[in-house]
Design a protein around this nucleic acid. Structure first.
Length: 324
DNA sequence: ACCATTCGCTTCTGGCATCC
DNA sequence: GGATGCCAGAAGCGAATGGT
């Protein structure tokens, strides 16, 4: 069973928000593609795991564990038979060669080495367990869930560390008969106690020339017709309530200016004053935690992202959305 | 049974006012 | 200038009604 949600990563939400506001540099566009691809690889991994079933297991997804000053990112941690397995998920496609400790695609060396990454992550986890005075075995695999991935290697020693799509179901099925005792429970507690926000991500770069305003949630067009409680998209006809637009802009703000405080002024700026300041204020009251500092109010979005917010509040919204 | 219109309740909006 | 309160008027929406 999954112990946490796999949320869209902050990086991906950042580049998506940048993308819709039309300011992607070549570098940004490449990053967006990399994060989209990584996320869909993880989605694929989850889907196949769901098909096989995992009720008897403990699984953490997409957690960052702090270890001392540094830490490591884990795509998936499985606890089965009181043993920890770390899975590094790589959504590689097309042909790769593995040679002299490097992956090579189209003759170019891939900068990161997933085997080294996962080794490092496993090492950190060992340290965590040792500090907590629990001795356990930690296994690892690099998972390639993409159908279209082919790997060639002269170094045959890598195969035992790799699972490709064709073998993925079989790999998951081997956990079928395993079960966990209280020891697994304490492993879960150790991991849970060290989950922290990913410090690598700093979303402040490259947001100086954002396109301001509100945009359609279906097609991304900024050309909207104003009615009293809704905005209707000129190009696709989708009609969304003001509240839906407010949820979207608050989520966008969170990831465009990740880590920066949100104020009424900053949101009004981002939407180009397309809503009355009172409308913004009321959305804050409803969907944010407020912090006062002197005369200045800061607001923190209550939800992880727009999808999360929409799921939780949709049924309480007075005004409905009409998707074209 | 089905669709269109009307009705009434709810709550959203934005102006004005007040306080800091 | 910003946060917050109060209020009248209006729009949205589901339910009720009515016509075929």
């Amino acid at each position: 069973m999954y112990l946490n949600d796999r949320n869209t990563t902050a990086e991906l939400l950042h580049y998506r928000a940048l993308s819709v506001r039309g300011v992607l540099s070549v570098e940004d566009a490449r990053n967006l593609k990399i994060y989209e691809s990584g996320f869909s690889g993880e989605y694929l991994y989850d889907k196949i795991f769901d098909e096989v079933g995992h009720d008897n297991l403990y699984i953490f997804r997409d957690v960052y564990l702090a270890v001392g000053k540094s830490g490591a990112q884990y795509d998936s941690i499985i606890i089965a038979d009181d043993v920890i397995t770390v899975n590094e998920i790589k959504n590689y496609s097309d042909e790769y060669y593995y040679k002299n400790g490097r992956f090579i695609k189209n003759g170019e060396v891939v900068p990161d080495n997933p085997f080294t990454q996962v080794d490092r992550a496993v090492g950190k986890l060992y340290r965590k367990c040792r500090n907590a005075k629990i001795s356990t075995e930690i296994k690892s695999k690099v998972i390639f869930p993409n159908d279209d991935f082919r790997l060639y290697s002269e170094d045959t020693s890598i195969w035992k560390n790799v699972v490709i799509r064709m073998d993925l179901k079989k790999y998951f099925r081997q956990f079928k008969d395993s079960y966990n005792t209280e020891k697994a429970g304490s492993l879960v507690s150790v991991i849970r106690a060290h989950i922290s926000p990913n410090p690598y991500f700093n979303g402040r770069s490259n947001v100086d020339r954002l396109r301001t305003g509100l945009y359609c949630g279906s097609c991304g067009d900024f050309n909207l017709i104003k009615t009293r409680y809704h905005r209707q998209c000129v190009s696709c006809g989708t009609k969304e309530s003001n509240e839906t637009h407010m949820l979207r802009v608050m989520s966008d703000y969170k990831y465009l200016f990740y880590g920066e405080v949100m104020t009424r002024r900053s949101i009004l700026e981002l939407i180009g004053n397309e809503f009355d300041k009172k409308v913004v204020y009321r959305a804050f009251l409803k969907h944010c935690d407020a912090h006062k500092q002197g005369n200045q109010m800061y607001y923190a979005f209550k939800y992880y992202d727009f999808d999360d917010a929409y799921k939780q509040t949709k049924k309480f919204m007075k005004h409905r959305d009409y998707l074209a």
